[in-house]
């Protein structure tokens, strides 16, 4: 095969992957992580004739490192790997839940955290809102250098990212407060959630909320922070029923999407209950949490 006909690369370093991704070629190149989104491009009617640059052999993308400034998670860490790494850490209860119950066991063993962030057409991720609640940043590596941006900024620019850029790792600051993750499915068996709410709340000694991040997924075309609800609840005590009522009052400003699995109005209608469930989880010990 001539060099220009190579359709599959499996580089062993980030630099080598960037070099393939940035080379001009007859067909577009695409970074492939776990493959669970890319391999379905044909079903979505997308161009499938792309050069695959598999990131599977780059060891540097697979590590999870704990340091004083937080947790650094390699982009190729799978949902299952992350779930076992976070298993007994109550500070990451929301993120643990997101990666431990998303999709099904076989997909969780392959689908990666980086792939979950980079699949810009996937509207129902669990990890992304959990990362937003934790105040995560992502590290992006291009031939011109590295940059670190918040998950929200990354999502905003995601559709127009240069092809020659790799999301190498996610950084989580040391968690302050409690986290929870609530999701609704039409059936239990491994489907996409129709609505997701992920929350981090840090309270003062008097019980009032000092930091609050509430992120939505599956409701609008992309995950996002629900800042109107955060502002309404900040400075108040954690109260599941009050949180539910405040969510109900702020539904009108959302732009829920219609999908084959659920209509937009239905996704929005689930949110107050999910907010209540998440806030209830924040206020009870991990072991007693709602298994749904």
């Amino acid at each position: 095969m001539a060099q220009t006909d190579v359709v599959f690369h499996q580089p062993e370093t980030i630099e080598a992957a960037l070099s393939v991704l940035s080379a001009s070629a007859a067909r577009p190149a695409i970074a492939v992580a776990g493959g669970t989104w890319v391999m379905r491009a044909g079903l979505r009617g997308e161009d499938t004739d792309k050069t695959f640059v598999s990131l599977a052999k780059i060891a540097a993308l697979r590590s999870i490192e704990r340091a004083d400034d937080g947790l650094r998670i390699g982009a190729m860490v799978t949902h299952a790997d992350l779930a076992s790494a976070l298993d007994d850490d109550p500070a990451y209860a929301g993120l643990h839940r997101a990666c431990a119950i998303s999709a099904n066991p076989a997909i969780r063993r392959r689908a990666t955290i980086g792939g979950n962030l980079c699949s810009d057409a996937f509207m129902a991720p669990d990890l992304v809102p959990a990362l937003m609640a934790l105040g995560a940043t992502v590290n992006l590596h291009a031939p011109t250098g590295e940059r670190r941006v918040s998950v929200a900024d990354f999502l905003d620019g995601r559709a127009t990212r240069p092809a020659s850029e790799i999301l190498t790792h996610i950084h989580l600051p040391p968690p302050r407060g409690a986290t929870a993750h609530a999701r609704a499915l039409l059936r239990q068996a491994g489907e996409y959630p129709v609505a997701v709410v992920s929350v981090l709340a840090h309270c003062r000694t008097d019980g009032t909320c000092q930091t609050l991040r509430i992120a939505l997924s599956a409701v609008e075309p992309a995950p996002r922070r629900w800042d109107a609800l955060e502002n309404a609840l900040l400075g108040r005590r954690l109260d599941p029923v009050a949180a539910r009522d405040a969510a109900q009052a702020h539904l009108k400003a959302l732009h829920p999407r219609d999908g084959v699995d659920a209509a937009g109005w239905y996704r929005a209608r689930l949110l107050p209950q999910l907010v209540e469930r998440a806030f209830a989880d924040l206020t009870r010990p991990t072991a007693q949490r709602d298994p749904q």
């Binding site: 599959f8 499996q10 492939v32 776990g34 493959g35 669970t36 391999m39 379905r40 695959f52 598999s54 599977a56 066991p105 076989a106 997909i107 063993r109 392959r110």
Partner: peptide
């Protein structure tokens, strides 16, 4: 490890 074969590029 159980894996859905439809989603695995054989090149890997």
């Amino acid at each position: 490890m159980p894996t859905t074969a439809c989603l695995v590029p054989v090149g890997t």
